[in-house]
Design a protein around this nucleic acid. Sequence first.
DNA 1: TAGATTGTTAATCGATTAACAATC
DNA 2: TAGATTGTTAATCGATTAACAATC
Lengths: 205, 205
Amino acid sequence: MSPQKIPAIVIGRLPLYLRVLTQIDSTKVKVTSSQEMGEYLGISSAQIRKDLLHFGEFGKQGTGYNVRFLKSQLMKILQVDREWNIALVGAGGLGTAIVKYAGFQGRGFQIALVFDNDPSKIGQTLENLTILSSNNIKQEIELMKLKIAMVAVPAKYAQEVTNQLIEAGIRSILNYAPTNLSVPPEVRIVHIDPVIGLQHMTYYL
Amino acid sequence: MSPQKIPAIVIGRLPLYLRVLTQIDSTKVKVTSSQEMGEYLGISSAQIRKDLLHFGEFGKQGTGYNVRFLKSQLMKILQVDREWNIALVGAGGLGTAIVKYAGFQGRGFQIALVFDNDPSKIGQTLENLTILSSNNIKQEIELMKLKIAMVAVPAKYAQEVTNQLIEAGIRSILNYAPTNLSVPPEVRIVHIDPVIGLQHMTYYL
DNA sequence: TAGATTGTTAATCGATTAACAATC
DNA sequence: TAGATTGTTAATCGATTAACAATC
């Protein structure tokens, strides 16, 4: 019997559970319940329990879930009980903000390489990282065997950069350019486009 | 008979359709099909047709959809056939990058107010906008009757800022702080947290 | 023991897909 | 007319919720 495939929609909620647990942990609370977590997220307690049960029995009847224990289990499941090195392409305003962003701290990620194609930026340092030439994307990423990259270049260059990253062995891409990108099926891509969320909300205004 | 309520999951896809149409339009192509749009997005053609049919008949049998016409219809439905003024709280690295971000252009949004609580920043200008004191959030937002705001402050201040925004009449919030926020049911909130997407992808690596 | 909350199943609900007549 | 693709329904699929026994 092969291990049953866990739905992507379930995997997608695990990082949200992890974020809530981190938040609860920061208040020194030791134990939580599926109901409490659900209230934070607007998700039913039954769904949270069912989601977690795909991976094991992490709670105690009558008591709930130990915050730190569940947190550590989710980190292991998501493979963020380690630090992944990431490549960033684009060291403009957005790229610079990403490098300085505090939200990666302790959540499994660390920017290890930064590329730009502007000769005046190449060789400059950004938070202890030297900005490298976009011409060397393939060689540098292969050298460090990176699997994850972020794209923070203008929309018109995004597809070209993406092709280079995939060529270099990148398998997961976080795209900040406000455009769709075409990638082969073995490459995962997530889009960060604030306007998508804003346009969803204006429908209801 | 009241107009049937359209599922939120359908509304959530409309901005994606709009982004694809904008992309196709930029290549001068005049007509597209549900199949072509689906290939860009990894969505079935049947789903796209069904989603659009909630709002009207926008295509021609045998031909497809006129790109510009469908785009203009979606913009009207999402209420982005106008420019919404937005308030931004936080003028640090992230806030500065957001103000300079090109992705809002022509997609219905424009930053009109920027706030920070750092005395050394207040009064400085950022892309033609004067940075205002966070103490004046309520009065300035009420004056301009803004309904949408972005939160780009450190996680520990995010809830407090959110409360002030809601107090000032804000009804839609785009939150960049990597934390959950509690808001009353009439306020909509969307989180922009790159780590959520990264952690989803590392599961599969 | 009494109270609480998980683990787990069955029932419900809703979303997606398949299929094809309509029609351009 | 022949070919293509929408509009539309019915069937399928999968996700969510309700409910409760197990048990801490």
